[in-house]
Nucleic acid binder design. Structure first.
Lengths: 230, 230
DNA sequence: TTTGGCCGATTGTTCAACAATCCGACGATT
DNA sequence: AATCGTCGGATTGTTGAACAATCGGCCAAA
């Protein structure tokens, strides 16, 4: 048995189950539900999550909620204060910089290494997805398209572990992006950046693509730091 | 509250508690115990971990063991097969390559960015630690010194998240390193590599240091792949 | 050899209970 | 008025027991 065989059974293993069909456990579904509410901004940073309340709400046992909390805590989406409860994680200025550091390391390395034509095409697809969302004036879709874009860049590396790391980082960012996206057209400015980066990638100008991406990330971090008082 | 405040309360948050003093929960201690046995090779890959057995062994409740399992599963040290049990993770050839991909991305980026004199000194310290272990003919200490070396390289980036990612990757590697280290003097060959890399780092020849590190990782991966039937 | 069904064992989940801990309020003291 | 104990309610941490669901293996039948 290798972990490759088993990933199908875990909740956040991105790839679909190949052979074995497994129904996600109740705890996994609770975690998924909370993850969703976290991403959608229903639960804002700092909010306290009471075990019994959630257990009642979702009609499950307190112990099951507890297991779900363990999952979310491992993903840093939630923070456990012993004997005090779990809270929706809130990122301070240091955390913002830290998240961007991780992104710089992983995304830039990934794009510099290039990738198979299929993976490059996925990046292009994400760019077009963003265009379509912009044309439809769908701010929400624009945001997810942007995340798809950066996810596709990491996917160039074809590494399951890097993919999950990236998706966790993006999940963390969704936590505090809500404040930034209050002013509409937030992602608009990034559309052209993505296009240019993608074009360089397709042209095989990997160093240039990496440079553009790095500049993009630096700018993005600056903007985020500005929005969140630092 | 920021996550920086709260990390003190989690078990695998590396940095020590700064303000609040917290006693690790029972589940955390169980997880720590299992982590230890995993690292020491007491529990070998593929081994099945029965909930009730461990609960009895450690004198805790089954539910508590379950929570500990959730922690370890999040770290990929253990794999959950629904309705079948949890097993010590075993890495297949694909996983080995994947782990090294992560290391190449993170370690090489970290060393290329350099670091503060203090952090560089820590790298040097790890090299000396390895020397001392070699002089004492302590193979075990040599292994941990090597891990300290690579941990110190990542620490150059001063990123809490990268540090935990790296420590998790190293924990994963310990899982299957046991087979490789059966032939003694396994780490010996790496001593000079580490010295050379460290020297280049200290001299500010970051590109050269990065190149050396990359070559080292490629060689190491090849060796590991050879040992584990690929 | 393959199919089918039964059985024991283990997991998934719930429930109820209790100790430990924390938070806030209420008073008492200075 | 401000500080300091103390008390009480609420929530978490942990346990133990229970039960259904599922799995693996065994054995019999075709």
């Amino acid at each position: 048995m290798t972990t490759s065989d088993a990933v199908a059974s875990t909740a956040h293993g991105a790839s679909a189950a190949r052979l074995r069909v497994t129904v996600p456990s109740v705890a996994d579904r609770v975690a998924a539900e909370l993850r969703l509410q976290l991403a959608e901004g229903v639960l804002l940073p700092g909010t306290r999550l009471t075990e019994s309340a959630i257990a009642d709400d979702l009609g499950v046992s307190r112990n099951t909620v507890r297991e779900a909390f363990a999952e979310l805590a491992a993903e840093r989406l939630v923070v456990r204060l012993p004997n005090r409860g779990v809270f929706v994680a809130s990122l301070g200025p240091g955390d913002i910089h830290d998240v961007y550091t991780v992104r710089r390391f992983i995304e830039v390395s990934a794009i510099r290494a290039g990738g198979s034509p299929g993976r490059v095409a996925a990046v292009r697809a994400a760019v077009e997805e963003g265009r379509a969302a912009a044309a439809a004036d769908d701010e929400e879709a624009l945001g997810t398209a942007n995340q798809h874009f950066h996810g596709a860049i990491v996917a160039l590396a074809e590494s399951r572990r890097l993919d999950t790391i990236m998706s966790q980082v993006l999940a963390e960012m969704r936590l505090f992006f809500h404040k930034a996206t209050l002013d509409a057209h937030f992602y608009r400015g990034y559309l052209d950046d993505n296009e240019e980066i993608c074009a360089a990638l397709e042209a095989g100008e990997l160093d240039r693509a990496a440079g553009l991406l790095l500049a993009y990330l630096d700018r993005s971090e600056e903007k985020q730091s500005a929005v969140h008082g630092d």
